[in-house]
Design a protein around this nucleic acid. Structure first.
Length: 114
DNA sequence: TGATTGACTATGA
DNA sequence: TTCATAGCCAATC
């Protein structure tokens, strides 16, 4: 499991953005990928999240796919841990999908722009 | 070394 | 509107 310096930077960027996600908000992989300049490599964000376990500060549960579906819930300890975490933040989840996703969606490109 | 997979997204039929 | 396919890049087999 050796990471190249460049890859490590990519991972760090993903984690950095993930940590900036406000409480009670969620974002998607594509937005993060685009924000860090990785373009359409949304999959790499997901892969980075796979290694987010080493970074307790990274709220991976606030990152879902573009339609607000909790595709990564199976990567958490429990099958419903991700949903519990989101609900504990006031985010409603139904059928593995975030309700009012549009309203709780947090786009780093717009929120962090300046 | 080459092929396959993956927590995705966008596009076309 | 829903389903299928292509593109993405790194890690794993």
């Amino acid at each position: 499991m050796k990471y190249s310096p460049k890859t490590e930077g990519f991972f760090e960027k993903v984690y950095a953005v993930a940590r900036l996600i406000p409480y009670g908000r969620v974002t998607n992989y594509g937005a993060i990928a685009r924000y860090i300049g990785s373009g359409g490599s949304a999959r790499m964000v997901g892969w980075a999240m796979n290694g987010a376990g080493k970074h307790p500060d990274v709220p991976a549960h606030r990152v879902v796919n573009r339609i607000g579906m909790l595709t990564g819930k199976h990567h958490f300890s429990g099958t419903n841990l991700m949903q519990q975490l989101l609900e504990s933040e006031g985010i409603r989840v139904e059928e593995d999908q975030v309700v009012d996703f549009k309203k709780v969606f947090w786009d780093p490109l717009k929120e962090l722009e300046s």
